[in-house]
């Protein structure tokens, strides 16, 4: 195994960790994107303007990369808008019921040694792996 092959992944992961660390250091919060994004409409957790500001930062990073680096962003190989809408709805409802997604439970929760986040992470990883297995290898919808 060539570790250099994974250098971008490691650097990217460390940058994600840096962002999570900065949010705790500056604002005292864990970095959970589904919570931040949902707070834009609910405004229940804290002031909406902070969530909007964060998502604008994400958007700007994406937009800049999209302009400067070909291939930095990509669409899903699934192009059927009905399936994309269904997936978005599942992600929206699921992350609110479970109070977190890949960032909140997967990165920050595990880093806080939260048992709740560990169970959530195992559940969503298993569910995502099972979904890919079913769509790709059983039903052979064949996007991969």
């Amino acid at each position: 195994m060539d570790i250099l092959q994974y250098s971008d992944a490691i650097l990217g992961g460390a940058t994600i960790g840096l962002a999570a660390t900065l949010l705790l250091l500056l604002n005292g919060r864990v970095l959970g994107i589904s919570g931040i994004a949902a707070n834009i409409i609910s405004g229940q957790s804290y002031s909406r303007k902070y969530s909007i500001s964060f998502v604008c930062g994400l958007f700007l990073a994406g937009w800049t990369a999209f302009r400067l680096i070909p291939g930095a962003l990509a669409d899903s190989p699934v192009t059927d808008l009905k399936i994309l809408a269904l997936a978005g709805l599942l992600v929206g409802i699921g992350t609110r019921l479970g109070n977190g997604c890949t960032s909140g439970h997967g990165v920050c929760g595990l880093s806080r040694f939260s048992k709740r986040s560990l169970f959530a992470t195992i559940a969503f990883m298993a569910s995502a792996i099972a979904t890919v297995y079913l769509t790709q290898h059983i039903w052979e919808l064949g996007q991969l």
């Binding site: 994400l58 699934v78 929206g92 699921g94 019921l97 990883m125 569910s127």
Partner: peptide, 23 residues
């Protein structure tokens, strides 16, 4: 928690997007 996480996993596995990357 577990139902929510499983629903999230299904959506993620269907198309490959989770909240941060899609935003």
């Amino acid at each position: 928690l577990l139902l929510g996480a499983c629903m999230f996993g299904m959506g993620w596995g269907l198309v490959g997007f989770c909240p941060g990357p899609v935003l």
